[in-house]
Amino acid sequence: MSDISDAADLIATARDALLAELLPALPKERRYTGLMIANAMAIAVREERLGFDAARSEAARLRNLLDAVGASPMRAADPIDTELATLRACVRDAVRNGRFDDPECWKMLVAALMHTASDRVAISNPKALRGEAAAAPR
């Protein structure tokens, strides 16, 4: 751990102060705004901690998917954000063109996108992630 607070630690600490000291002092009609701010800060902390790895592994999965259906774009030397945008657009086009319609490809597509979606829900709202229930029949 570094000696000096990083961005995530600063936001997390600021959020604690908001919840402990400011929220109880807010008038009732401002409480909702206070809670929204706390929620936004919690998302920012999680994204700061998990976002980079999530984006890198998403890019890797999208590249695999495109390789599997022979729809890979030229390997870009762009920074990860641009590369991700390109990969997502290529997967969108391949999906629309039915390149993943084959049952095996489709299964692979859904599984890869699910992995990415789980990573993002772990940042945006981890409470919405399903545990074992996800695998249980309805």
Binding site: M36, I37, I43, V110, M114, V121, S124, A128, A134
Partner: peptide
């Protein structure tokens, strides 16, 4: 802020849509 946070719900909806697709299959 409310509109910005509503945008983040998209992640959950993608996740739920994929859960449904996996269930259906």
């Amino acid at each position: 802020l409310e509109l910005a946070l509503t945008g983040r719900i998209v992640h959950e909806l993608e996740y739920e849509a994929l859960q449904l697709l996996a269930q259906i299959a």
